[in-house]
Computed example of a mutant assay.
Amino acid sequence: MIALSTPAQAAVTTQCQIQSREGQPSPLAMRALFTLESTSDGNVAVTYTNLPSPVGVGQPVTIEQTRKMIFYNSTIPAVRQQMLSNPTFFTELRGFSDPEGFKPFNDLLVCRSVGADKPQSSPPQSSPPQSSTPQPGAAIADLVDGSYRYWNGAPSMNVTDKQLRPGSFTFLFTKAGNRIVGIFARPDDLAICMTGTVKGNTISGVVNLPVRFSDAEGRSRQNKPLDPPGYLKLGTWSNAGNAFSSSTLNLSEFNRINIGPRKAPITCR
Rank of each mutant, 00 (worst) to 15 (best):
T267C: 08
F105S: 09
N223Y: 14
P60F: 07
P27F: 08
P228Q: 08
C193G: 05
P228H: 01
P87W: 09
G137M: 12
K175Q: 05
P187A: 07
N250Q: 08
Q120M: 13
G182C: 02
S97N: 11
S220C: 13
P25T: 05
V144G: 10
L232A: 12
G230S: 09
G146W: 06
C268W: 07
P27S: 12
T35K: 04
L143G: 05
R186C: 01
N255G: 06
A29E: 15
N158A: 15
S252A: 15
L109I: 03
S214L: 08
C16E: 03
P166Q: 02
P228V: 04
I203T: 06
T91L: 02
P136M: 02
L84P: 01
I180Y: 00
R269V: 05
P261W: 11
S122N: 11
S121A: 15
N242L: 10
F169G: 03
S97I: 10
P210N: 09
P225W: 07
N201M: 07
T197Y: 05
K199A: 14
D227I: 08
G200Q: 11
Q82S: 14
G137L: 12
S97C: 06
G230Q: 06
R179L: 12
N250V: 08
N250A: 14
V61F: 04
G42D: 11
S147G: 00
L209E: 09
T248M: 01
T195A: 14
S26D: 05
Q130L: 15
L28T: 06
L226A: 04
S214Q: 01
G177E: 03
L143V: 00
K175L: 08
A29S: 08
A185K: 03
N43K: 11
G58Y: 06
D189L: 11
V61L: 14
F213W: 13
M30V: 15
K118H: 07
Q24N: 07
P123W: 04
F71R: 04
E100V: 09
F89H: 13
F89S: 09
P87R: 05
T160I: 02
S168C: 04
V61C: 10
A154I: 02
P52W: 00
R212I: 00
S53M: 10
Q65L: 13
R262P: 02
T49N: 04
P210V: 11
P104T: 07
T267A: 13
S204I: 05
L172K: 01
A3G: 11
P187L: 07
D145V: 01
Q120T: 13
L172F: 00
M30S: 15
N43A: 13
F102D: 11
Q59H: 13
Q59R: 15
F34S: 03
W151G: 10
N73L: 09
P7I: 02
S53C: 06
S247R: 08
V207T: 12
D41W: 09
K103P: 04
M30D: 15
G56I: 03
S53Q: 15
F102K: 04
R221S: 09
G167D: 14
G23C: 09
V55C: 04
P60N: 02
P52Q: 00
